[in-house]
Each structure stands twice: as C-alpha cells, then as structure tokens.
Design a protein around this nucleic acid. Sequence first.
DNA 1: GTTTGTGAAGTATTTCACAGCC
DNA 2: GGCTGTGAAATACTTCACAAAC
Lengths: 222, 222
Amino acid sequence: MHDSAVLKRASPGEVPEVVILRLPLYSRVLAQLLREGMEVVSSQQLGQRLQVTPAQIRKDLSYFGRFGKQGRGYSVRHLLLELKQILGLDREWNVGLVGVGRLGRAILGYPGFAPEGFKIVAAFDRDPRVVGQVYGAFTVQPMERLCPMTHALDIKIAIVAVPAERAQEVIEQLAECGIKAILNYAAIAPQHSPDVKVRSIDPVLSLQSMTYHLRAASREST
Amino acid sequence: MHDSAVLKRASPGEVPEVVILRLPLYSRVLAQLLREGMEVVSSQQLGQRLQVTPAQIRKDLSYFGRFGKQGRGYSVRHLLLELKQILGLDREWNVGLVGVGRLGRAILGYPGFAPEGFKIVAAFDRDPRVVGQVYGAFTVQPMERLCPMTHALDIKIAIVAVPAERAQEVIEQLAECGIKAILNYAAIAPQHSPDVKVRSIDPVLSLQSMTYHLRAASREST
DNA sequence: GTTTGTGAAGTATTTCACAGCC
DNA sequence: GGCTGTGAAATACTTCACAAAC
C-alpha cells in the first residue's frame, strides 16, 4: 500500500501477486516469534497475529511446498528460512538512491533497511550543489553516473525520492540502466514496462482512502 | 505498499474496499488534468494515465452515481469535486502525530500533507527530553495529553511514528481517545478493532515482495 | 460517431471441509 | 485430538458487450 492498487493477475500456474505480497508479512511475524523463543506455530496462531484466516496461510504456503507437520504445525525456524529463500532474502541486495533532497536524506538515515539486507550503496542527484556531498561511505554522484554505477555495483533495486515532476523521467532512466525493482516515493502513477516492478509509498493516498470511512461514520450518526 | 495487503471484503450493498483505494488515484489524476487545462476526459483517457481499464473506472464510479455524459465523457472539474466529496476531502482534517524522533521530525517537515488538507496540529512523545520542544505553531506534548488534545482539537486522524516495540500500545491508546484513522509507520502487523482504520507505510515489505520477482528473473536466465 | 452505465459473463481469490497424517 | 494440504464451493472482483444518451 502504500503500493499501487493495481495487481497483476496470475497466469495459470503462476503464483498470484496477492500471495507474494503476504509472504513478507509471514516472514516478519515468524522472525518475531523466533526472537520470542517459539519453536512451533500453527496456521491458526499465525493467523491470529496477522488478522488472516488460517486457511489462507496454508493455501498461500501450499503454492511453494509442504512445510508443516500434521498435528503439530510449522517449525518457526524452518518456515522462516524457507520463506526467506522464496522471497530472495537469503542474500544482500545493493540499492541505489536517486534524489538526495530532504526526503532522500531521511531515507539515507533510516536504519530499517540494512538489517533486512537492503544496503544503500550509491546515491545520485542532478543538482550540482548536492553532487559531491559525502554520506557515510559514499559520495553523491551526478545522474550521468547512474548506468555505470549500477553495473559496477550490481544494483538491481533503486529508490526514487525526487519531486513528482521528475519521477517519471527518473523511472525511465533507471529502467534503461537495467534496474528491475523500484521503490517510488513520488506522488505519481508511474508508467513502466511489466518487467520492471514498481511499488509506491504514498502516505497521502493512504490518508485519503481512510477519510472516506470517517465521512461515512459521521453520516451514520446523523 | 506501503499499505497493508489485507483487504476487507465488501458486505452486500457496500462499496468494495478496493474501489475506495482507487478513488484517490482518480482524484489525483483529475487534479493534474485540471491544472493542465483539460475540461473533459473519457474513461479511456483516464485509464491510460492510470494503467486501469476504462470499464473498471466506469464501474467504480457507478457505485456512487452517474457523473458522465454519453458521447462526451466526464467534466474534469465536476468529477473531481464529486470524488473529493465522496472521499471526505472537501474539508480540512486535523491530524495528531505520535512519536517525534527522527522519523516523526521528517514527517513534520514533509510538505505534502497540508496542500491535501491534512494539517498536523499536535505532536506527542513520551520522552521528557523531546516534550516541550517547539515545532512551528505547536509544542510537543506528553502522552498524558493525548485524549484531552484530540478532543479539544477535534483530531480524528493520527500518524504513528514510534519504534515498532511501542506501536501496538500507542495504537490502542489512540483508539481509546476516539481516533478513527491511523497512518502507521511502524513495522508491525497492528491489531485493532474494525471501527478503527489503520494503513501502514512499510517500505521494507515493498522491497521484500519485489525481490521475489528479482529472484525469479535471475532463475529464468539459468 | 462516441462514450457512459450496467447487467451478465468470466476470472481470481478466499474459504470450506475433510482425508490423511502425526 | 490436533493440524496440514488441498480439491471443491463460495465469494469477490474485473471485464465484456451493448442499449441508451448525446
């Protein structure tokens, strides 16, 4: 969410995208259960923590294999490892950041990416006043260096934190450099080829869909 | 995403939640078209901008009324006004912020909320070193002031920017104060009663669902 | 000729319910 | 006795296709 509201439908045989979107949730809760020292968990217990039906969890997992034991449930440690492997989280990913304004700097300072294996290893900006500034272990690069750097550092994921007016253009540049996954913070509806995945973070859209319910609630009480 | 992947299903007669989630997208594009000076738009044109089928747009709008003219399309200005009214965006909303750490301060500085009618009018923190600090027109309050302030300022929406460990507790406190909509930035799966709406902004979940596709892509090429 | 609004048709997704296993 | 894995059933959502309106 949030995320684009548009979900790709699954071709026959493929795993539905809604399922993929839930797997990271499962993975996160399992990680927490592991820290709490729990060794085995049932789909029922997992569902309670996530507000998801047990049947859905079992069905989701069944797309990928048979990870449970009847009568017992799932080994927390084992299921977590399996999910991380399925999601490609059993490795580190180098990430490039485009846009080092106010938002971009907040993202550079955000401590939540690294522990999950997402390492920001390069930053780009077109503003000459920002280019050359040093953040941690790297220096902000001009946009011309985008393609060379993504290849040199094997960057497959980019974060877009430029103003809305420039975001579409940047997304296209990223695609040309071979980037396959983009986390977009700009408030736009991005156009992109289907082989590039884009997810948008858009707090205003989230607020705007909640006010619908607030309005409905205040009308009921009339 | 970003947003929770879990959608509530529509009870018969209700508008499906997926539809509500798309309305703000329509509203945003219409606002842009209005600025560009366009007066009339067809569902086809709108769909092209949003990567949504024209039939879906027409069906979505039909839940709320008949806003178009056959043979012509929709008046950009009129449809925008209707959508804003439907979404409850024809007014300002006072918003409370809980958590004035690094992230909370970034949110306070974010210029995207106010132009959309979301006005942060109070901030709270439990850390005595943060309480009393002044941001713009208001002073950071202790958590004890949460309920009194939400009532005094008619706050119905809150933003949660506290560490994950404290987020569940804060969400419960907010619910007790009568808050009905929460934008949650903490990386948790929040538990809450169905009459409180919660949307989560979670960039890590978005990244984690994209790596699935990256992994799949690198496997294909083997 | 164009485009809406909408039942009906077609898909997708979720939930049920139970055989099989621990 | 408890719980998984999964076809089948139920539900939700999207798309089609066309009459009506301009």
